[in-house]
Design a protein around this nucleic acid. Structure first.
Lengths: 205, 205, 205, 205
DNA sequence: CATGAATGAGCCTTCATTCAT
DNA sequence: TATGAATGAAGGCTCATTCAT
């Protein structure tokens, strides 16, 4: 009796729509993307979409939530069995390097735009803040542990370190948002890693 | 024959409109801001604006150009008689600290949104790239000189340093875009300064 | 997959819109007719029209092309099996007489206004000229044949005759554009026919 | 005490405005001509015009009245001492031939457009009809006299002749409204003259 | 009187959403 | 459920006219 197949089908379709919409939103921006664009890109009809999402904005929000969930989730997973502050930081930078610049750009573009959008919709700021906090928390724990284990200098301000970490990472992606070589981006990521490690480490490191 | 109102008056008005529009754009975003909003905020009539600007987009572009010109200009000016790479970096961070967080947010919000917008308008990407290059150039020169004078370590990649500098600065502003305490922001700026100086400096510094 | 409404339905609607718009354009003129007027007259919504026509101007142009096509087409058809220059001229005047004065007025009003409009739009002058040439050509062939068969005097200037024919016809409609009795119009048409026949014929006729 | 100079000056200015406006109206059409266009063409200010005319429409109407007055007036004058129907017809055609095709086009364009415009303004139709009647009357008198003197055939319908005369003349101008050679226009005018004379004359002529 | 900046009603067009089929 | 034609509110821009200087 349970319509499992149907449910699976629906979920698949939902995901497909989200993917198609993401493509359009990244390409043209949320406001400039017409429902017609999404529909044409997906080869479906206008009305169909409204069976899965209440509105264009609804798609945007669910899309953003999905992406942020996935990111936080994946970081948590991968940190499960990873010890050491330095290793974790290195691991994170490794992850950043392994993402193609194109992907970074897409994600950054999408994320920035959604951030600006959400910051103006009172109903969304809390969600946004929650995700932000999770990313902050994730890093702070690293630095806190690093100080306990002595990997980080004792006078390190773990909050500052956390913010600086994300600042460097987001800021670098920002510099490459519009153009720039992937090779340069990779090189600068390496330098950023050095800079951060030097900053958090003991004087001797 | 003589103009009814002086050129100075017109320029004043132009500036006033730009200021009012900036207020609205920062508050609600470019696309979400209706011409009606700007006009109401300024207490003028709808048509009046079109004597000064060709379109809403024209206002946006001129506004952006004006701000970027001013920024680049002011940096150039203040660097005239300032020697030493370290001093210049310190000076820049000082400047950053002296701007109120509110101002930073406004500027950052505006700039990010314009960047996203312009990146999708072929006619604007070049302008955007030009301004970006000026900021890059400004910093690169500092690090190049720093290496000449020995203030920076000889193996410093001045390009990397340049990008990292802006990444830290922009990235930090980004973390505080939606919320956060001014005090924290200031503290982290200090830390950022330490991080950067440590990164570019000689091992002994 | 199959269209919700048939192509025939769409074509019907297109024609209905064109007819409604024609009514309004003839009544108030193209520029003075608001899209709102057309829509109200047709009992449809504003947006609906834009599924069939790209703009108010597009409707105007297609309308004009349709009418001119139909006219040229119908004349060609009816000339297929009609011999003799005199008979053809008589046939044409018969046609003119059979059109109600009201129809003539509508068509003339529409055509004149479109002509004035199109003459100021570089993109339309060629189309206009093409239709005009077709009407000219149609008549010239009559007079050329008339000279071959001896129905027309040998020293007749077929170009002059062509232009005079249309001049008389259009000019007469022009005199009755604003007011005048249908009976008078019919009578003058008869006289016009005599005048033209006398002009093109042999001295003896 | 009488401000004669001032009055003359005003009248001069009024005429200048009318002339400038006529230029614009003929070039772009009444509705498409912006007050700004007229003002720029004349090198005066927007407000100035409203000291002489109540509105754009007012200019249009007065302009039309002026032109029609002048035309009717001039015909009347020149007919004062001219005897004979045939001579008068010849004289009229001579007048038509002496006008440059460019002038004809301007006048025709202006007149047609005003006619279409006025026909939709109840307040103007009477004025329009009055002028039309004057032109009709002028010609009818010629043919009436022609019948009295025997220059025209006795069974001539003077009303028909009148309408046909104007039809031929207006219709021919209409054919040349958009393009065509002045030489052709002149030739066809000659032919038109022959056609009309043949039509109104005795069988022997 | 002249000037031209300001006014603001008006209009074409767009596009998210609905709903009859 | 899917379709896509229809809806209609909304918004950028125009331009005849006014009026403070």
């Amino acid at each position: 009796m349970s319509p499992k197949v149907s449910d699976a089908y629906k979920e698949e379709k939902r995901a497909a729509i989200l993917e198609g919409a993401l493509h359009c939103f990244t390409e043209k921006g949320f406001q400039a993307t017409k429902v017609e664009d999404i529909v044409r890109h997906l080869g479906m009809s206008k009305g169909a979409i409204y069976g899965y999402f209440a509105s264009k904005e609804d798609m945007y929000i669910q899309m953003s939530n999905g992406r942020m969930d996935a990111m936080v989730q994946s970081l948590h997973e991968q940190f499960k069995n990873m010890p050491g502050a330095t290793d974790r930081i290195r691991f994170l930078f490794g992850r950043f390097r392994n993402q193609s610049l194109d992907e970074i750009r897409k994600w950054m573009t999408f994320h920035l735009e959604f951030m600006l959008y959400a910051s103006r919709q009172p109903a969304l700021v809390d969600t946004l803040a929650a995700y932000s906090n999770k990313a902050i928390q994730l890093l702070r724990e690293i630095f806190e542990e690093g100080k306990r284990t002595g990997e980080c200098r004792q006078d390190l301000d773990e909050n500052a370190a956390t913010y600086l970490f994300w600042a460097v990472r987001d800021g670098l992606a920002l510099q490459f948002l519009l153009d720039g070589e992937a090779a340069d981006y990779g090189r600068y990521l390496n330098e950023a890693e050095q800079m951060v490690l030097r900053y958090i480490g003991n004087a001797s490191s």
